[in-house]
């Protein structure tokens, strides 16, 4: 009993615990929440028109054979401003981008587009975060890459920079 392995058990447990701590320190926990929809069909959603001269968007707009980007953004979100020039670049390359504005007001959006430009083909207002939650989006800006069959083939969390353009184009083409 006295020389039993039982007394080495605390040593083993502690080593396992500290090994976990070490891995967690070297590779800090990733705090971004990814949507589980990648690889699945875009869920049903309804985002009515935000701007008087632009249509809104809903889930039926996406299965027409043309791949697109669906950008979740807001006029009150600072990083979204930084993203607009890159989205305009993508638009110039022929990529169609639809926007869903979260917790936003039409007058704020008008000002936002007047100041930064409008890269969107359609802009819808999300009502009470319903579309955002349906997408599994945890914040703004986030961009979903949708293929011609209306399937989500990719998600980009955070601001899209110029460096991300090739990757996004590849995902759009590949779909």
């Amino acid at each position: 009993m006295k020389r039993s392995w039982v007394f080495w058990l605390p040593v083993a447990v502690t080593i396992a615990m500290f090994a976990t701590f070490l891995v967690a320190l070297v590779r800090p926990s990733d705090r971004t929440i990814e949507s589980q929809l990648v690889g699945h069909a875009l869920p049903a959603f309804e985002a009515p028109a935000a701007m008087p001269d632009q249509p809104g968007t809903n889930s039926r707009d996406y299965a027409d054979g043309k791949p697109r980007l669906l950008n979740v953004f807001a006029s009150w979100c600072g990083p979204c401003v930084a993203e607009i020039p890159v989205l305009l670049q993508l638009q110039a390359m022929g990529v169609e981008i639809n926007g869903v504005a979260i917790h936003d007001k039409p007058e704020d959006l008008s000002r936002f587009f007047a100041e930064n430009g409008n890269p969107y083909a359609r802009v819808g207002l999300d009502q009470g975060g319903r579309a955002q939650i349906a997408f599994g989006s945890a914040g703004v800006p986030e961009t979903f890459i949708i293929d011609g069959k209306g399937r989500v083939v990719g998600q980009h969390i955070g601001v899209i920079t110029e460096a991300d353009i090739p990757d996004i184009l590849a995902k759009l083409k590949g779909s």
């Binding site: 929440i33 949507s35 009470g128 975060g129 319903r130 939650i133 349906a134 599994g136």
Partner: peptide, 29 residues
């Protein structure tokens, strides 16, 4: 806040709490 609204609306519509949980898990993991 938006999630609280969604939870209450779905429960009020007769869904069971575990269905609502499963639905959210299917979005956020």
């Amino acid at each position: 806040r938006d999630m609280r609204r969604l939870v209450r609306e779905r429960i009020a519509a007769g869904e069971s709490p575990e269905t609502v949980r499963a639905w959210l898990v299917s979005r956020y993991g």
